[in-house]
Design a protein around this nucleic acid. Structure first.
Length: 429
DNA sequence: TCTGGGGTCCTAGGACCC
DNA sequence: TCTGGGGTCCTAGGACCC
């Protein structure tokens, strides 16, 4: 007889090797084959199938350093295709929200579910149902971890992914299971404990999650990792500290990318910035916001030891918030003029918008006029681009040739978001 | 040749005020 | 020689996440 807790429970549902699973969805022949998905610019590996990991390939590893292994083992390689991944993610999240009273979408491939309406005896069965339903209706394999707090649910999920016996589900619904899980988890594997914090914890002699859970000295923990560290320990003890966040709007929105080649000219760099600004401004308008704060940065390639380095940022705060892509570009360009240094080989640039106000409800200053024509123009531009594809309408500052543009040589089709790239089905009748 | 991009939260310490 | 103290607000930057 197991001692069952009487508590609130959370589930963490995480899609297995999400980007790889999305690619496999449209190419079933890739099942059981080694597959990797590359970051923007085809720089490093950001998603790997189990089979690819077994070859010794690592998450975050540089593509060019592992090309030999990849070619020799015929590893299927894809450039990232975010249109596809976001669309599949939306389908998964929609389904999950139907299976829970409350859902916190934590990232593109994982979500916390509030299980307060599920009876304790039914938790495991519910996890099985979630797993099977997502697999059947969207075609994406997921792992489910259940625990009394978010940190415990996350920990359960890690074990669900690792242990072959668990078959993708770990439910910490009794003291014995919970203790075993804490004992098996090392401090650096705890959610919220990164490299720096785990080093400090290890210096204290704490090796496992159980050690941290049992550690009584609040003062010492606070010194190591402030309030956050204490919250993590309490969550491990089953005391809920991290709130369930139903994310509404983002507080800052950025866009930055590495260039496909070295950029020496400010004209090309500004063109890239105009494109990034366009994207950030569009994302901001989609959530109904307007920005007051604009920051940009540019940097050379830190890996290139033979070239001189320059990395600098600049920002400004507008008198009145804006949602006008043209205004954002012109401010970004002015900032670029301030910090750009000729003679350097720039590799990356980015823009960030923040200090948002609500698009339609914000404080006007005496004498301030709303630029209705700009608002209408932006709305029209967004609608046209939504209907006919990104960049159908754009500001000329974005240029047309974009020689700095990143490489993305192995991208799959936008199967679900672009009509010309949808899979074709042939009838045999 | 080639090493991601996009976020959140927290806090120390500076600036300023009385 | 002695040179206040307490409070608030802001922000850059650190740490972490996927």
């Amino acid at each position: 007889m197991k001692a069952i807790f009487s508590h609130q429970y959370y589930a963490l549902v995480d899609c297995n090797s999400f980007y790889v699973s999305c690619e496999r969805l449209f190419q079933p022949a890739l099942k059981k084959r080694p597959v990797v998905v590359l970051s923007n610019n085809d720089g490093c590996m950001i998603a790997l199938s189990k089979e690819a990991k077994a070859l010794g390939l690592k998450m975050g590893g540089a593509y060019h350093e592992n090309r030999d292994i990849i070619l020799k083992n015929q590893v299927e390689t894809f450039s990232s295709n975010y249109n596809l991944y976001q669309n599949i993610s939306n389908r998964v999240m929609m389904l999950l929200s139907e299976m829970s009273s409350k859902i916190e979408v934590y990232s593109i491939d994982e979500a916390f579910l509030d299980l307060s309406l599920i009876g304790e005896q039914e938790l495991f069965e519910h996890a099985q149902n979630i797993k099977e339903t997502v697999q059947k209706q969207v075609g994406i394999p997921v792992s489910v971890g259940i625990g009394r707090t978010k940190v415990l649910a996350k920990l359960a999920n890690e074990l669900a992914k690792k242990s072959p016996r668990a078959k993708g589900i770990v439910c910490l619904d009794c003291a014995r299971y919970e203790a075993a899980a804490l004992e098996k988890t090392l401090v650096h594997q705890i959610w919220g404990v990164g490299k720096k914090l785990s080093l400090k914890l290890e210096l204290l002699g704490l090796k496992t999650a159980q050690d941290l859970c049992d550690y009584p000295n609040d003062k010492v923990l606070h010194k190591i990792g402030t309030k956050k560290m204490l919250e993590i320990r309490d969550e491990l003890r089953g005391i809920s500290c991290l709130s369930f966040i139903v994310r509404d709007k983002k507080k800052n929105i950025g866009s930055s990318k590495s260039f496909g080649k070295k950029v020496f000219s400010i004209i090309e760099l500004k063109e890239a910035l105009a494109n990034y600004a366009t994207r950030a401004a569009f994302k901001m308008r989609s959530q109904g916001s307007r920005a007051k704060y604009i920051a940009i940065y540019m940097r050379t390639n830190p890996f290139d030891r033979n070239s001189s380095q320059h990395c600098e940022g600049a920002y400004l705060r507008l008198e009145f918030s804006t949602l006008d892509t043209r205004e954002i570009i012109s401010k970004a360009w002015a900032l670029a003029d301030e910090i750009f240094l000729p003679g350097y080989a720039y590799k990356k640039a980015g823009i960030e918008l923040s200090e948002f106000e609500d698009r339609d409800e914000y404080q006007l200053v005496l004498g301030q006029k709303i630029n209705w024509s700009a608002e209408k123009l932006m709305d029209t531009m967004d609608r046209v681009n939504a209907r006919f594809g990104d960049n159908t309408l754009k500001v000329m500052a974005c240029g047309t040739h974009n020689p700095w543009k990143m490489l993305s040589q192995m991208k799959s089709q936008r199967h679900t978001t672009h009509i010309l790239e949808a899979p074709k089905v042939r009838s045999c009748i």
